[in-house]
């Protein structure tokens, strides 16, 4: 240790001669209060955001699971006949509803005729839904066949009805023009 080092160490206390001033403590308190005031709303805000994110995640997962479950239920019967039936069903049902609408337009003018027509078609409708519930209980080729026949039959009936109605209309028109 040389002279300078020795001198400094011996007089160490005297080297701390500066004072920070009275204001420093007040500044510390002010800064801490400010930080506190700042941090509280931030943390609250963060908690809110976090809970929203969590809630969204939970809902998302539930939806995903629900959809997944449904898909897997649908995916259980991999029978090609059933998929075929589904396709046939959707094809015919759009066709049937189209024809029905067309017929209803004619039938508005003829309430008696409408009654008997609706009766026939409704019977086939209820038969079809019966077949469908039976099929869901136990699969059978016969039921699938019967359902397809039912659909075809309804189309056939609707087409015939439509033809009849159109010819009646035509006859009425002709009569009018004759008179």
């Amino acid at each position: 240790m040389d002279k300078l080092e020795k001198f400094i160490r011996e007089n160490r206390e005297e080297f701390d001669n500066k004072l920070p001033g009275d204001k420093s403590w007040d500044d510390i308190v002010n800064r801490m209060n400010r930080q506190k005031a700042k941090t509280i709303p931030i943390t609250q805000w963060m908690w809110k955001a976090a809970s929203i994110v969590l809630l969204a995640a939970v809902i998302g997962l539930l939806i995903e699971r629900y959809v997944h479950d449904r898909n897997s239920v649908n995916a259980v019967p991999v029978n090609p006949r059933l998929t075929e039936l589904k396709q046939v069903e959707s094809y015919y049902s759009t066709l049937i509803s189209e024809k029905r609408e067309e017929i209803q337009a004619y039938l508005k003018k003829d309430p008696d005729f409408r009654k008997s027509f609706n009766h026939d078609i409704n019977q086939l409708d209820s038969m079809y839904s019966q077949l469908k519930t039976e099929l869901s209980k136990s699969y059978s080729e016969k039921i699938v066949d019967a359902m397809i026949v039912n659909l075809q039959l309804r189309i056939k009936i609707l087409n015939e009805q439509l033809n009849i109605l159109q010819s009646i209309q035509k006859a009425k028109k002709d009569e009018k023009s004759k008179v």
Binding site: K18, L19, P20, S24
Partner: peptide
């Protein structure tokens, strides 16, 4: 402790305002 700490800070940063 403030006096000792202040002197340490002052010796390093060499500026009163900054040391405070």
């Amino acid at each position: 402790y403030s006096k000792a700490m202040y002197n340490i800070c002052y010796r390093i940063v060499n500026d009163q305002e900054e040391a405070r």
